[in-house]
């Protein structure tokens, strides 16, 4: 072979194929030598070819595995969940060491409305909660977590969350989910909860306008208050920037110890210690539309629910020794 620099570019292909052929012959010679023969037999050549075909087939199958695309009505893809499970197991067991308290309070025979404190920019809390319940009660009982509108605006994030069971938080969606027998995880604090700075951590914000309670009353499902402690330290927001956020169309641009300094790596959660605590189901008076229309009752139940979640959060904080232990 001539010097590659001297060879014109159109000869580069020949150069490569020549090099590859040489490599293949060398490999075959060594394989043959290993076997005790010294000749380059037809059998050896054939073997390599089938090996290549086999590899190609396997790679093709790998590609096909993601092609199931069999999603349910809300876009949940069991195949995606299955492939993401090892990562979640790692996060739950090793990274966050999630401790569960009061899981026996969660009924496993009927849809439930989970109401939790919200924290963090990415819905790690919702995903962790959904995984926890699925592990305890089986895939059929996997709850769907409601996600805020501003997450829906993010490309790449929205399709991924939808496949993991995230559903846009709105009344129609939650009603339909509960009516079709799915449990729902609601974060009534909404963006206000997600946008809390580190200083205000675990201080619950106003619970929306009582939509969660009204929903449970109308659907006749029990409300299970949940405290998620630890998620607030995954992305501790030091302060928020308003002006650059407007350029990206976001409600706020957070500054955390890792974001935006580390770029996309800043999306990785910190290894805080988590405690998920389930409270006793709130007794709801049953599927009575008239009751759901009683605004005072709804407001009273909402406040009750908020103080219960706040109590659970405080109790769960006492379980932890520190943020990371």
């Amino acid at each position: 072979m001539s010097d590659p620099k001297a060879a014109p570019s159109r000869d580069r292909g020949e150069l490569w194929s020549g090099a590859l052929a040489g490599l293949r012959d060398e490999l075959l010679r060594r394989v043959a030598a290993e076997r005790g023969g010294d000749s380059l037999g037809e059998a050896g050549r054939f073997d390599l070819f089938t090996l290549f075909e086999d590899l190609r087939h396997r790679v093709g199958q790998l590609g096909m595995r993601e092609r199931s695309g069999e999603v349910d009505d809300f876009g949940l893809d069991p195949e995606t969940i299955r492939s993401a499970r090892p990562l979640f197991q790692l996060l739950r067991r090793r990274w966050w060491r999630i401790e569960l308290v009061g899981l026996e309070h969660v009924p496993d025979d009927r849809p439930v409305l989970f109401v939790a404190n919200h924290s963090g920019l990415l819905p790690w809390d919702g995903m962790a909660l959904a995984e926890t319940i699925e592990e305890a009660h089986g895939p059929a009982r996997r709850p769907r977590f409601l996600i805020a509108d501003w997450l829906i605006t993010l490309p790449f994030v929205q399709p991924a969350l939808a496949r993991l069971g995230g559903v846009r938080a709105c009344r129609e969606n939650a009603e339909r989910l509960l009516a079709t027998g799915h449990s729902v995880i609601a974060f009534p604090e909404g963006v206000k909860g997600a946008a809390k700075t580190f200083r205000d951590r675990y201080r619950l914000q106003r619970f929306g306008r009582g939509g969660a309670v009204r929903l449970a009353l109308e659907a006749g499902v029990p409300i299970v208050p949940v405290a998620v402690v630890g998620a607030e330290e995954t992305h501790p927001i030091l302060f928020k920037l308003a002006t650059p956020a407007r350029a990206f169309g976001l409600p706020f641009l957070p500054v955390t110890p890792t974001f935006p300094w580390l770029g996309p790596l800043g999306a990785l959660p910190l290894p805080s210690k988590w405690v998920i605590s389930f409270g006793e189901p709130l007794a709801t008076p049953g599927p009575d539309a008239a009751q759901a229309g009683d605004d005072l009752l709804v407001a009273r139940l909402t406040e009750e629910l908020r103080s219960e979640v706040q109590r659970l959060v405080k109790a769960a904080l006492a379980i932890r020794q520190g943020v990371f232990s």
Partner: peptide
């Protein structure tokens, strides 16, 4: 629309 529910009645 971004704020459509998953199923439009």
């Amino acid at each position: 629309h971004l704020d459509n529910p998953n199923f439009l009645s």
